[in-house]
Amino acid sequence: MKRPDPKLLVQPAPLLKQPLTTSMAMRDVLIALAPATLAGVWMFGLGALLILLASIAGAVATEWVLLPDDERRAQLANGSAIVTGLLLGLTLPPALPLWMAFLGGVVSIGLGKIIWGGLGYNLFNPALVGRAFLLAAFPVAMTTWSAQTGPTGFFEVAASNLAAPFMHIDFDGVSSATPLNLMKFQHQSTALWDLMIGRTSGCIGETSGLLLILGGLFLAFRRDLDWRIPASILIAVAAFTSLLVLIDAERYPGPLFSVFSGSLLIGAFYMASDPVTSPLTPKGAWIFGTGVGLLVVLIRVFGGFPEGVMYAILLMNAATPLIDRYTQPRVFGKGLKSPRGGHE
């Protein structure tokens, strides 16, 4: 007993801790998105990369400005602002002016996150709040799609990308219809293989279906997302569209087309499954996913927009507190017939 006692820590139990942190979850999301992101940049060229950077910059800068000094470092370090910015960027059309992408990042973090009290308290997916804002504010810019540049045109940045802030954009000659546009307005289908590998026009990150699924499976495997949500979304979309095809195969798109077109996969795997804004309970997750799937088909087929994933997710986000509330699992031992009149 020559050595003095060590200074003992007194922490509350449990004294073991699973080695797992929030920033690890965010890193997982970035890893999962990497293949689709790279594919998007490869297909749509340097302009797409600039858009991603602009939206990430908008998100990170807003977080930096709006957070109190002592919170900044820690909050930025967990990487959630980068994830939000990247997700937003991936859902933007490749010809969008950079300043709009930046503004989207600002709105995502400002209205989507900070006002709610920061990470974990927002009730709507921040990236989608930013995107919904952009779509409502700049409907033309947000629905003008450019064709893929391919490797030869990689360094050709579209003039519309570099439009000056607040100034009118000239989209002449960049328009190219997305598979969903073709389906909705001209009843033209797109080859399935093109949809799967992303040889179509659309948002930067939404086209490569197979890569998105790959990343999604990685996240599900790492338990960073509740597999029930993407599963139920895809099942609901497939089931609903199959039903429609049974009614009129000429008029309605089939289930495979519906699953692989538009932003359904990126939405199902990376946005709807955002744990912060989706139900906690397993039963709630099924209801949530089914709701998203049904709303997507409803909006795509019967609504005014060719694509409804964003709205479907936002609407189900709004319903999440209610879903959570009414799907609490039965607590162990509750609601049983107590033998011989228990003393509750």
């Binding site: 709610w116 919904a132 409502a136 709303l295 609504g303 005014g304 479907a312 936002l314 609407l315 986000n317």
Partner: peptide
């Protein structure tokens, strides 16, 4: 939630309503 103090109350509620209203825009043309 630790909502910023100045926002608490009607200001936040209006912004929530705004976001809800954006989400409901998805029904346009239904």
């Amino acid at each position: 939630a630790p909502v910023p103090r100045l926002l608490r109350g009607t200001a936040l509620n209006l912004i929530i309503a705004g976001i809800l209203s954006m989400a409901f825009m998805g029904f346009a043309g239904l």
